[in-house]
Amino acid sequence: MKTESKLQQILDNGQFGVTAEIGPPKHSSSEGMRHHAHMLKEHVDATNITDNQTAIVRLSSIAAGVHILDSGIEPIVQMTCRDRNRIAMQSDLMGAYSLGMRNVLCLSGDHQKFGNHPTSKNVYDVDSMQLIQLLRRMRDEKKFFSGEEIKEHEPRFFIGAVANPFADPFEYRVARLEKKVEAGAEFIQTQCIFDMERFERFMEMVRARGIDERVHILAGVTPLKGWRAAKYIQNNVSGMIVPEELVQRLKNAEDPKKEGVDICIEQIKYIKENIKGVHGVHIMAIAWEEVVPEIVERSGLYPRPKVN
């Protein structure tokens, strides 16, 4: 189904998509986000707006979406299942649509244990798979999740989901991705890829099942600022794999930041040229948004296609 999403137009046209990520702040000013959006707007097709990532209270992703849109970038509103039940989700989705947002990314969300309110309850009334169905039902069937009719102005989002090739059980990750496509996901962003060999094996299985022909897969990449960041992810972040050689390469670098950017560009070029079935990249420059334009340009992905 065609939506008004520009990201969808680009991906459906067969162009290699580029998305980035903007994390809303832990305060009530839009200034920083607007600054980042202006910096990125010529270089990406859309940016994700994270939803209280790592369970830390931040400015609302939907409110942030208004600022991002106003700054000239199409937002991809992230929605986790951790903080809202199905009533709040549908309400917020209609609100987001009314404010001009056209892309939603469905995620489980990090457990609140990792955030700044570890004693809170979690919701998980619906899970990420069901959230995809909920969005589909609203858009394609013009129904609320309960089955009640939406008489007019149903929200018509381009529906995204995530996949993590680095979590276990490895083989089942591909089946679960297929399940998300069956549920109705139209684009997929992957967890940050550092272990390229594993991602290639993942994509081999994806192609074997023909999943890449049914959904747009955007490979997630992250420039690392130095070996300590790499080591931290390697040791402390569940569901991520950082090969030791990558840590060493950053450790031995004269200018680790430059090396981090170089590695990221190499990864993007490699993915684009060698891994079939990948339809774009999702650049997650965590607290390093300003480096994205350089990465996009040096990866040969600039200028971005123009869409109406």
């Binding site: 457990h111 609140q112 244990k113 570890p118 004693t119 809170s120 309850k121 979690n122």
Partner: peptide
């Protein structure tokens, strides 16, 4: 005050 739900199922 709000409860510490980590002691319930919310803490895993």
């Amino acid at each position: 005050p709000p409860k510490d739900w980590t002691k319930s199922r919310d803490g895993g």
